[in-house]
Nucleic acid binder design. Structure first.
Lengths: 233, 233
DNA sequence: GTCTATACAACGATAGAC
DNA sequence: GTCTATCGTTGTATAGAC
């Protein structure tokens, strides 16, 4: 598992999932030719993420989006019925890619320590490759409407639950001892999020994804070891 | 140092600083009577933070702000010349309060371990009492214009430098060993920010500020201890 | 299938009555 | 010192030409 393989996997998944979105929404998308639609969806998503991450989704006007995507007003509205649906589309696409790629990575690992490594590194690599989407998703969540907002919170709690589960398992198998798995899981999430929220900072300091991953893992390990030591006194 | 004393200190500072803002801006603020101006500034800030944190500063219309603050359009424009200046005013006020309160707390502590405790807890308590401002400041930073944006980044790096300094000192005084103080400082910041960015989560789980503070401190300590252990091998 | 032109609503900001 | 009325601009969304 390295960054390059993630890039490839995400690139393939992105096209696949745009195709799936096109098919599942063929009733509302006015374009009928698949290759055209998929190409334009990719363009729209890329342009939206760029602009929305600069000035915010709300502040990004559809005129801005026309210019950035190289499409026209009418052209855009062939893919969604209003601006909010564009947001839904982007969330749908991102979530689908994340689920697919992470599912592939985490399948069939039993050892808790190994699972912890894998989960942390996978999240980190994925958020590195899909940084614009992760950033967007984090920053815009509070503006989402009811349903989309619930989905975002559910996503946050779900990945947290994955970490908590691994830590719990780690306690059982005695590799490391952690009295408050959920709290540590929350901390792991916070550290992983910091990576894609403040990319500028880590880039400026020449810290690589790999190095940051090592750091997060050693942090969690040290905490587990410290708690063991205390407990064994 | 407990939460209650922070509340009092912040309440006093807020009024003080609104008074100072009024005085320093008496040329641009059209209101001349201090008591009226200070009362209205406090109202405007509170209303702005509430609305901006719900829907975003850009999406918050000044008509919304009229309703929330109980003032009129013309009334608002007596305190700032445009919407952007309102943002500047809020940032100025928040930064001033933070600098004053934290300055009071951290003055004259020499021991590194004690300073680490104090710095973490102070930040945490302050962000608890001033949560709306911290949240606002974090979430809106990316929309700030040149000067205000630089100030925000400088603020982030400055508090990080404080933590890094304490950790460095900790190495020197041999209390704990940390090979990468700046990285650990960044992690501390991320954990402290998570507290005010995801308040809903920690509240839902009945985790108190004190408990979270203990957790962050023990995390850093454990990491320091782990590195010492390795180094001594 | 894509573009231009336009309708209509909401915004920030100001001028002048009270 | 505060309010109401109104201006010009900019936004989303659509209808109809090509």
């Amino acid at each position: 598992m390295d960054l390059k393989s993630f890039e490839k996997q995400v690139a393939v998944s992105t096209a696949d999932i745009c195709r799936e979105i096109f098919e599942s929404r063929s009733h509302s998308i006015k374009i009928k030719k698949e290759p055209v639609a998929v190409r334009n969806l990719v363009r729209i998503f890329k342009a939206t993420l760029k602009l929305a991450n600069q000035k915010g989704f709300h502040a990004m006007s559809l005129r801005d989006l026309c210019a950035e995507s190289g499409m026209s007003m009418g052209g855009l509205y062939a893919y969604f019925k209003n601006k909010e649906e564009l947001l839904t589309l982007i969330q749908e696409q991102g979530r689908a890619i994340v689920a697919r790629v992470l599912g592939d990575q985490l399948a069939g690992i039993d050892d808790a320590a190994q699972a912890l490594d894998m989960a942390i590194r996978s999240h980190l690599y994925l958020s590195e490759v899909l940084q614009p989407w992760f950033f967007f998703s984090y920053m815009e969540t509070r503006f989402f409407h009811a349903e989309e907002g619930k989905r975002a919170i559910a996503g946050e709690l779900q990945t947290e639950a994955i970490f908590a589960g691994i830590l719990q398992k780690g306690i059982a198998s005695a590799g490391f001892a952690i009295p408050d798995p959920l709290l540590v899981a929350a901390a792991i999430k916070a550290l992983l999020q910091d990576w894609y929220l403040k990319r500028w900072k880590y880039r400026r300091r020449n810290i690589s994804v790999e190095a940051y991953g090592d750091f997060v893992i050693s942090m969690v390990r040290a905490y587990g070891a410290g708690q063991t030591a205390k407990g064994e006194k």
